[in-house]
């Protein structure tokens, strides 16, 4: 994958964030090219979610730059970052329980600039319900959905804004084998649409199937980076994972 500045959707440099004495993200740097799926791996507590929180503006960084399509977004409010074309899902699924599926997805596109006309919004919502496998559930309250359907709905909401960059935090976790196959196909189809993805994932089969490149974090630092197959066979990576999550889930 070409790494010219022009094709870089996300570029992170010197990113740091500490919680008291604990440095959760330490001098993190990487770049993701247009249309690429970048795996962000590492054992529990290595700082993956914190990194996503920094990029999406939930947390403020102590130091470092984050560029989204060339623009520095470090310190920008989350809603501004969202309007610049970044969408995400959460490790602990977050859907709007008091609303139905249709409204949940509508929330994802109703506040984008430029404004999406109502008729187009309806068409887009229908297409998204269909795409994530929730067709016919549009009036169902989100609170009534099963775990997997909540994940689907959350992804549909993230996709509603037509993001340039999508951050997925263990979106495939907790799926059974057949659901996993469907999920992997779905993410692959997003790549085909030209969406750039940062994928935080413990499910190694999914990482192998989807990621063009990976970086591995341990205790907040990047310990490996490269093509997926190379990274997964790296001695330092295997060591970091020992005792943590097994090499395949």
């Amino acid at each position: 994958m070409s790494q010219d500045t022009a094709t870089r959707v996300l570029e992170v440099e010197g990113l740091r964030r500490a919680f008291g004495g604990l440095v959760a993200v330490n001098d993190l740097g990487f770049a993701v090219g247009q249309g690429e799926i970048m795996g962000l791996l590492g054992p529990n507590g290595s700082g993956k979610t914190t990194a996503l929180n920094l990029i999406s503006g939930v947390l403020r960084s102590d130091a470092g730059t984050i560029r989204l399509m060339g623009q520095n977004i470090a310190g920008l409010a989350s809603y501004r970052i969202a309007r610049l074309g970044l969408a995400r899902t959460f490790q602990l699924v977050r859907v709007l329980d008091g609303m139905d599926c249709r409204e949940n997805i509508k929330a994802g596109l109703a506040f984008q600039k430029p404004h999406v006309p109502a008729a187009e919004a309806e068409v887009r919502i229908d297409a998204l319900l269909d795409r994530v496998g929730l067709a016919g559930h549009d009036r169902r309250p989100a609170a009534d959905l099963t775990y997997i359907d909540r994940k689907r709905l959350e992804l549909a909401r993230a996709l509603a804004a037509k993001p340039r960059l999508l951050l997925l935090d263990e979106w495939l976790a907790g799926l059974n084998p057949s659901e996993l196959t469907v999920g992997i196909e779905l993410i692959r189809s997003l790549k085909a649409d030209g969406i750039t993805i940062v994928l935080v994932e413990h499910v190694m089969s999914a990482v192998r199937a989807l990621c063009d490149r990976c970086i591995v974090m341990s205790s907040g630092r990047k310990i490996a980076e490269g093509a997926t197959a190379d990274v997964l066979s790296d001695a330092a990576v295997v060591k970091a994972y020992l005792g943590g999550v097994a090499a395949d889930a």
Binding site: S56, G57, V58, A77, S78, Y79, A82, R83, A87, R88, F90, R94, V95, L96, D97, G98, M99, E103, K106, A107, G108, A110, F111, Q112, K113, R157, A158, A161
Partner: peptide, 24 residues
Amino acid sequence: SRLGFALRVIGEDETVATHCGINT
């Protein structure tokens, strides 16, 4: 209105609201 919808989303989950592009 859109403001009303925004407030419902905020009432449900403020973090999600900001990620939907709502200036909370």
